[in-house]
């Protein structure tokens, strides 16, 4: 009984994790510039990895494999934002300009909901 519940739960986690990874990859292709692509890649690095590894953890049960999966997750959660930040800094230093809303002809320009001019709390 419990194993059935765990099995279906891990199915759910694995599949939603894979869906997250797919969406992240689609976002990587759809986004218009480097910095927006980083946001898309962030989905795969955080939620996608968390869900897939959580699904595998439920299958692993209490064993060494579980510890190693936790360690992988720990590593990904520490390294992916660091790599992302280093990449952003290198790109800025290399002369890449982020595409901002002012230069982007979308239907919701920045003036609609712009909190930028308010004084900081």
């Amino acid at each position: 009984m419990i194993s059935t519940v765990l099995d279906s739960l891990s199915w759910l986690l694995l599949l939603s994790g894979c869906a997250c990874l797919l969406i992240s990859a689609i976002g990587l292709l759809r986004m218009p510039d480097l910095f927006t692509r980083m946001h898309a890649a962030g989905i795969g690095d955080t939620l996608g990895a968390i869900l897939v590894l959580a699904g595998l953890m439920l299958q692993a049960g209490l064993s060494i494999t579980l510890v190693k999966l936790v360690l992988i997750l720990f590593f990904l959660l520490f390294t992916s934002p660091t790599a992302c930040h280093a990449l952003a800094r290198a790109a800025l230093a290399g002369g890449q300009k982020p595409l901002l809303a002012e230069n982007l002809n979308t239907e919701n320009p920045i003036s609609e909901s712009s909190p930028t001019e308010q004084p900081l709390p």
Binding site: M38, H39, I43, T46, L47, P81, T82, C84, H85
Partner: peptide, 12 residues
């Protein structure tokens, strides 16, 4: 790093 970990915001 917490900011970068939450997608939608990146610390530059």
């Amino acid at each position: 790093n917490s900011i970068t970990l939450t997608p939608g915001t990146i610390c530059l």
